[in-house]
């Protein structure tokens, strides 16, 4: 019996169109991980609280556990797999801004979107954005150093 509770949809991910069959009830996170093999976005709470599943949708950070896959049609999706050699990735390594690494892709996506949208972000903007993610290993001081160095590097200042 045909039903209307699932559908084949096309998602533009990391500048590629990907066609995937999903339940309407599937979150974008589930589709990315289970249907498309993009496991960089992590499940941490499935409730929009921890930020481990953060990706970038049309330039804004989004918690992919809070978005249905069907809602993402027609949007430009960037996952951590779509980032390479970015300033924020480099600085995360240099500043020891991760330990277990599980929250890292989410933090990096959030930081990357922040840098793109607000290259001049001050402390209060950084705090407003980054308090969306939880890191349980670091003291956040390392992440603070990484985002500030990446912002500086992007502006050509010495980090």
């Amino acid at each position: 019996m045909h039903n209307h509770t699932s559908a084949e949809i096309t998602l533009n991910i990391n500048n590629e169109d990907r066609t995937v069959y999903v339940r309407n009830a599937d979150t974008l996170l589930y589709a990315l991980r289970e249907k498309l093999g993009l496991t960089g976005a992590k499940p941490g709470c499935l409730n929009g609280d921890c930020g481990a599943c953060t990706i970038i949708v049309d330039g804004d950070p989004m918690k992919s556990c809070l978005m249905l896959a069907v809602e993402a049609q027609g949007k430009s999706i960037i996952t951590v797999e779509g980032l390479q050699n970015t300033a924020i990735q480099t600085e995360f390594i240099d500043k020891f801004a991760f330990q277990c690494g599980y929250c890292t892709p989410g933090f990096i996506m959030n930081c990357h979107a922040l840098m793109t949208k607000y290259p001049d972000a001050d402390d209060s903007v950084i705090k407003d954005w980054l308090e969306s993610n939880i890191c349980r290993c670091t003291g956040y001081q390392e992440i603070e150093a990484a985002i500030k160095a990446a912002l500086a590097a992007a502006k050509g200042e010495p980090g």
């Binding site: 953060t54 950070p61 989004m62 918690k63 809070l66 407003d128 308090e131 969306s132 993610n133």
Partner: peptide, 12 residues
């Protein structure tokens, strides 16, 4: 608004 949830959630 700025005190509701967190910035990323407020994008949604």
């Amino acid at each position: 608004i700025v005190e509701i949830a967190d910035h990323t959630a407020r994008n949604k």
